[in-house]
């Protein structure tokens, strides 16, 4: 058993008191490594909660700088951060919340050439991206590297999330075979998004990561949880792992990663 300092015992007391987490669970959290893909609406609450929880290593990858239009929902970034790299802005807040956490920043676009190398070092990945090609890239890379991850997406008043244990539960591609054609689905920057739903969905993803690390409860596997914040209806749609899935099926047809075309609207002009 590791030696907690008196300060750490106080800091993590509300975890240690939980029967399902306890001293052992907190030790697992401090030893865990989680990668957050995207330092935006979803990555913001995820990064704060994972750091607060004492996840020992948190990686965060994003190539953007903070813009004023981000601040309505990306609560890890402050007005004074406009113009700075999102990963550095998020890292500063995580370190300020909890100096126990080692934060690794990657200021780059995740792409087919670098994703496997980056995710390989982590126990769990959070997909907080804002576009379909990257969501499929995260899914495929995590399946190939056998790294569990949480898928998440938000638009307007709606959110959806699922947790994937590669080769054990349905993956994103088992249900959604390929990205929708460009322009078929608008992005947040076109369609808008209610700020608080980023928190609603991101905190679910953070809770899934903490549950996975501490082996607590039942994960959101083999189902898609979706909600509509206008009515506050939540529903779980059961999903099944598909034997003919092109990435995690019996005879996968996707054997290497390629970058798919990015939709026009999320490329900043």
């Amino acid at each position: 058993m590791m030696d907690f300092t008196p300060e750490q015992l106080e800091r993590y007391s509300r975890h240690i008191l939980l029967q399902d987490v306890g001293v052992e669970g907190q030790e697992k959290l401090l030893a865990a490594k989680v990668l957050i893909v995207g330092a935006g609406g979803l990555g913001a609450p995820v990064s704060l909660y994972l750091a607060a929880a004492g996840v020992g290593t948190v990686g965060i990858i994003d190539n953007d700088e903070v813009e004023i239009s981000n601040l309505q929902r990306q609560i890890v970034h402050f007005t004074g951060d406009i113009g700075t790299a999102k990963v550095e802005s998020a890292a500063a807040k995580m370190r300020a919340v909890n100096p126990d956490v080692t934060v690794k920043t990657y200021k780059k676009f995740l792409c087919a050439d670098n994703i496997r190398e980056v995710i390989r070092d982590y126990d769990f990945v959070i997909d907080g991206t804002d576009n379909f090609p990257t969501k499929f890239l995260v899914n495929d890379a995590c399946v190939m590297e056998k790294i569990p991850f949480s898928h998440g997406g938000i638009l307007r008043f709606d959110g959806q999330t699922m947790t994937v244990l590669p080769h054990n539960s349905a993956c994103y591609r088992c249900s959604f075979r390929q990205p929708p054609p460009p322009d078929a689905v608008p992005t947040c920057s076109q369609a808008g998004v209610l700020g608080a739903i980023a928190g609603m969905l991101g905190t679910i993803q953070a809770a899934e990561a903490l549950k996975f690390i501490t082996k607590t409860g039942e994960l959101l596997t083999n189902c898609l949880l979706s909600f509509d914040a206008k009515t506050m209806n939540f529903r779980k749609v059961p999903l099944r792992k598909q034997p003919d899935c092109p990435i995690c099926g019996e005879n996968p047809t996707i054997t290497e990663l390629v970058d798919m075309e990015q939709t026009v609207c999320e490329l900043k002009s």
């Binding site: 015992l9 240690i16 001293v23």
Partner: peptide, 14 residues
């Protein structure tokens, strides 16, 4: 409370 329980749990874990 609750730090006394936290300390108890730490000792019991050992």
């Amino acid at each position: 409370c609750p730090m006394n329980l936290v300390y108890a749990k730490v000792e019991l874990a050992r």
